[in-house]
Design a protein around this nucleic acid. Structure first.
Length: 152
DNA sequence: GCCAACGTTGGC
DNA sequence: GCCAACGTTGGC
């Protein structure tokens, strides 16, 4: 199994929003980057764990843990004309965008980006590299275990 | 709201 | 296939 970090803007879907959903499960819609899509399509398996990361907000950081609960399938918004995530070049026969489902494992204390940057052990973490914008990134087992110690 | 760092698009 | 122009991301 693999470990991941998945970014979500809390103004769109926060960890609390996820916790309120019926099965505490959501389709990870809206990914429109090929690298991130390929991670979902090619590498994510049911049972993989991911940090749920709040981005583009007052205090960005890790807000919880989720697990992959459904393999990648076509993103529901790519065919909806007028929708923010509509893609005219995608067809049902050959869908361009996919998403997995994730289910809440636990909400945690917020481990901020600022705090993450202070750990020497995490200096090579993908999310902390300059210019990183990818919304889904792999997390190494070492990084995962290190960070978990600081999540309550 | 600014803007650096990327990713994508499209003319050539 | 190059690369300028444009659009997006996301911390600050």
């Amino acid at each position: 199994m693999r470990y991941w970090l998945m970014k979500s803007e809390p103004s769109d879907v926060s960890i609390d929003d996820l916790a309120k959903l019926p099965k505490q499960t959501i389709d990870w819609y809206g990914v429109r980057n090929y690298q991130a899509r390929n991670f979902m399509r090619d590498l994510m398996k049911v049972g993989d764990l991911a940090f749920f990361y709040h981005s583009n907000c007052d205090v960005p950081g890790i807000a919880g843990v989720v697990k992959v609960s459904q393999l990648a399938y076509p993103d529901r918004f790519q065919f909806q004309k007028g929708h923010k995530y509509f893609d005219p070049k995608s067809t049902p026969e050959n869908p361009r965008w996919l998403n997995v489902d994730v289910t809440l494992v636990k909400k945690t204390n917020l481990l901020s980006l600022k705090e993450l940057r202070e750990f020497k052990a995490l200096e090579n973490m993908r999310i902390l590299q300059k210019g990183n914008r990818l919304s889904i990134t792999p997390v190494s087992e070492d990084e995962w275990k290190f960070i978990e110690k600081y999540l309550k």
